[in-house]
Design a protein around this nucleic acid. Structure first.
Length: 479
RNA sequence: CGGGGUGUGGCGAAGUUUGGUAUCGCGCUUGGUUCGGGUCCAAGAGGCCUCGGGUUCGAAUCCCGACACUCCGACCA
């Protein structure tokens, strides 16, 4: 009977159907709700709280590195969007347009921003005149809209929350340094806060951002061995500046175009967290962004003093800055265990009459399921220690997944065989030609993920065309 | 945008082949009971059967159309 009940509410097993498992977690852990508009999702309080924590962490880093937040308009006139050729080609197909104001048809239709390069450029052209005005380092937290054909919770929304940084610099060197700095901030955040190991690198021309000269990326590997681009940072050169007529007088009173960057991460990261860490019991949240880090559950809560004891432990942890919740609802303890596991709460503290007699509590880890009997005198220190241990273990586990599923290959056949049988990433040398990328897509079903910063010399020639090759590239199937 | 699948109380399904009073489980409400891994018992509430047309005395069921979700491709953060 109990088994039947569990089956009804259980999420689909990862091995049975990975995509269904993913969707189950999104809805059953109360992160997301669907709406009546395709591709538009509601971030429910628990899902939004994860985003708020990501936002808080990154925003602090942006400010530490001298960036200022701004708020730009949602609507972009068509003429403005068209100023940069590559950019408009990249985004026009997925723009949504406002054509009417009230009942009046507009003279010029307005695009609901898919990204804000053009608005920033227009603004910068007004406010930048002198080398003294540089650098300009702006960021905005907002939502953007892209009319995607297919959508999935977090991974592909038609409207999604993100952050877009846009900076202007006097020199190319400075702009490139900025681009690289922001990629490092993303990479550190992924690894140290989200416990997601990354591969840092550069996108090929085929995969780079529309209008960029160079796109840096961090790529993560999900549980199903597919790649998720988790953050990007672009160097634009002075292409946009020229298109938008942004000029400044340099120290020699020469009129110059500044060099530009943009960089962003989105709520997609939450999809990455789910698919990197989750298991068949639900979500597993990295402690440093978990909205609830510790849930305190009273056992036999009708017995005198138990609820008070649980609340007391929660108060002690809250005083230490731990995000803690106590659940004294009349659900059974077993139900609560399953519920907070589904929601990925890193640590569970149990306290019942037996514990109270012994001046102890039980702490259970979400990542390993291990349970510890902990003296109440050591509560704070043990929780702090375990939160770090959970983070570290989650990171190492994900790193192992990445490393064990990345294969150095020296022939197309080998890539094809590995991708067909194992999945994951394949590393090969590459000549740099688009034709070879297209060939890989056609024959192995993979796209280039990045040319990693950490290069290895796997040979001297491109295994696809046989021409000399200097760079190692990573191939994979991407989300 | 191409190919498949699915739309039935909040969720998951049965019923559709062969038209005839809308069924089950979970959840929800109330009362009791239990509490260290999704307690148990009882009583209740809740449905334009996705939407729009048609056929029929009668449609969840048959026919036509739309929409949505979902999976697999192509495109994309």
């Amino acid at each position: 009977m109990a088994k039947e009940k569990k089956k009804v509410q259980a999420i689909t097993s990862m091995d049975v159907d990975f995509t269904q498992w993913y969707t189950d977690i999104c809805t059953k852990a109360e992160l997301i709700d669907y709406t009546s508009v395709k591709g538009m999702f509601i971030l429910r309080p628990y899902g939004y709280a994860i985003w708020e924590n990501i936002q808080a962490g990154l925003d602090k880093e942006f400010k530490r590195t001298g960036h200022e937040n701004v708020a730009m308009p949602t609507l972009i006139p068509e003429s403005l969007l068209q100023k940069e050729k590559d950019h408009v080609e990249g985004f026009a197909p997925e723009c949504a347009w406002v054509t009417h104001g009230g009942s009046e048809k507009l003279e010029e239709r307005l695009c609901i921003r898919p990204t804000s390069e053009t608005v920033f450029c227009d603004h910068y052209s007004h406010i930048v005149h002198s080398w003294r005005d540089l650098p300009k380092k702006y960021n905005q937290w907002c939502s953007v809209l892209r009319w995607e054909k297919t959508s999935r919770p977090f991974l592909r929304h038609r409207e999604f929350l993100w952050q877009e940084g846009h900076t202007l610099h006097a020199t190319a060197e400075e702009a490139i340094a900025e681009t690289e700095q922001m990629l490092e901030i993303y990479a550190d955040f992924c690894e140290n806060v989200l416990a997601m190991p990354v591969v840092k690198g550069i996108k090929t021309d085929k995969e780079k951002f529309s209008g960029a000269e160079r796109t840096y990326t961090i790529e993560c590997m999900m549980h199903d061995k597919k790649a998720l681009q988790s953050g990007t940072s672009h160097y634009f050169g002075d292409g946009f500046a020229k298109a938008f007529d942004i000029t400044f007088a340099d120290k020699n009173n020469q009129l110059s175009h500044p060099h530009q960057t943009s960089w962003g991460v989105s709520t997609r990261m939450i999809g990455g967290i789910i698919m990197t860490h989750g298991d068949d019991n639900g979500l597993i949240l990295p402690p440093r962004i978990a909205p609830i880090q510790v849930v305190v559950l009273p056992i036999a809560q009708h017995k005198p003093g138990v609820i008070e004891a649980a609340q007391g432990l929660a108060d002690r942890l809250a005083a230490q800055g731990v995000r803690v919740k106590t659940d004294v609802s009349d659900q059974s303890p077993g139900w609560k265990f399953a519920e907070y596991e589904m929601k990925g709460v890193p640590l569970r503290v149990e306290i019942g009459p037996k514990d109270m007699e012994k001046n102890q509590c039980v702490i259970a880890r979400r990542d390993t399921g291990e349970k510890y009997f902990v003296s109440l005198d050591e509560l704070e220190s043990k929780v702090a220690e375990l939160l770090d241990a959970v983070h570290e273990h989650m990171f190492q586990r994900a790193k192992r997944n990445l490393e064990e599923n990345t294969y150095p290959c020296t022939s197309v056949e080998e890539v094809k065989e590995k991708m067909a049988t194992q999945g994951g990433f394949a590393k090969t040398m590459w000549c740099g030609d688009l034709a070879c990328e297209l060939y890989m897509k056609e024959n192995c079903g993979v796209t280039s993920r990045c040319i990693p910063f950490e290069q290895e010399q796997l040979g001297d020639t491109c295994p696809i065309c046989g021409k000399p090759a200097k760079k190692m590239i990573i191939w994979g199937v991407a989300y």
